[in-house]
């Protein structure tokens, strides 16, 4: 029986077909899905912040784009993935509130998405699809059998990337 495995905020998990990985309510956070289509192995990280380098409290590597993606790659390889076959799909990085004279902090979604793209590039992982930005939340379900990433929203449609 296929299971749907939940990944919480600032957490990451690896799973095999026929299971699915899911994370609910991504706002400024970004869901990073890595896939190796040969063994049908997938990983999902729900990152909250761009960089572990700037944080005072960086005890949880899964919270930050840079350290979470590195950790997810390591876990995928440990589970049997080939590094050079890994591809990525990402979703999230919205800006949920609008303020006059908005500070950097309020653009955290944009910064998260950028940090994820930069980290993927640094690790030479090909980004095959993305659905980021906007001002609305996303729930994502990663189907490890097909590599499809379903993106659900409230009032902004559903799509598969």
């Amino acid at each position: 029986m296929a299971r749907v495995i939940q990944v919480g905020m600032a957490d990451l998990k690896v799973a095999r077909t026929p299971d699915k990985l899911m994370t609910a309510g991504l706002g400024s956070c970004v869901g990073v899905c890595l896939y190796d289509r040969v063994p049908k192995l997938g990983g999902l990280a729900h990152i909250m912040l761009p960089s572990s380098q700037q944080a005072r409290n960086n005890q949880n590597p899964a919270k930050f784009a840079d350290s979470a993606i590195e950790m997810l790659v390591a876990e995928m390889i440990k589970a049997g993935a080939e590094r050079n076959r890994l591809t990525a799909k990402i979703a999230g990085g919205a800006q949920m509130f609008n303020f006059a004279g908005e500070s950097d902090i309020m653009k955290i979604g944009e910064r998260n998405a950028l940090a994820v793209r930069e980290t993927l590039k640094r690790l030479e992982i090909r980004l095959v699809a993305s659905d980021t930005g906007g001002n609305y939340g996303r729930t994502i379900v990663f189907d490890i059998e097909t590599g499809d990433l379903a993106v659900k929203t409230i009032g902004h449609g559903e799509r598969i990337i």
């Binding site: 991504l26 706002g27 956070c29 949920m96 509130f97 303020f99 729930t139 409230i154």
Partner: peptide
């Protein structure tokens, strides 16, 4: 206090934008 901002959406999405800045410390 600032002028209030309002969002109608998923609970996780509303929260994480705010928790993100807080998550750095506590």
């Amino acid at each position: 206090p600032s002028v209030p901002g309002l969002g109608i959406d998923m609970a996780g999405a509303i929260l994480d934008a705010i928790l993100a800045q807080f998550g750095e410390v506590g």
